[in-house]
Amino acid sequence: MSLAEEILQLEAALRREKVCPEILNFESELVNKVVTAIESKQKLINSITIETIEQQFETQIYQLDLDRIKYLLSNYLRTRLFKIQALAFTIVITNKADMLSRKELAFLEKYYIIKTNLFKKSFLLKIPEEFRSIDHEDHSTSPDTEPEMNKHVFIRALDTIGNCKLPNGQTANINKDDIYLLPYSLIKPLIELKKIDLI
């Protein structure tokens, strides 16, 4: 796969992550490739010795291009981090940790500790011990707002899917490249099968 294709894929991954209410699988292979590409390109740019105005101009164009790739990568990682923070308690309680990369998991673990410490110091230590826990299995007392699974999302079919039963009783005939607005919970399994893409 060329870098250009990887970048298109990263764009798609970012779009999916932005739209989806819950956390998606980390695109580890893709991210690794892009990180390696960024590192080698940055080293290359840093090693150019600028002698003429033309060379300087050229390096600046390379640098800007690279900055835009960096932006894409950091936006993807940042979007995920924000979701992990918002759903930290839910992820820990429901054991969704395998969706995260190892670095994200390390982040989550530490994040969970400093967050619970804040709660403890500011409030929980002041109330009777029986009520201090915040990670019940039914997360009735978890401070997170749960992901809105019935949120409507735009989808594009990557494949012909055929008839699909909608919550209002009607059926929709989804063909390849069709675009629909549907509740996320309904089409979740199709995303995992890579039959549709979120847009």
């Binding site: 600046q60 640098q63 960096k70 390390a106």
Partner: peptide, 21 residues
Amino acid sequence: YSSKVCEFVDITADLVPPKDL
């Protein structure tokens, strides 16, 4: 976290797509 991912990328550097150097 940012420094572990990639030494050349600061994940909080650009919050809008960069247009000029």
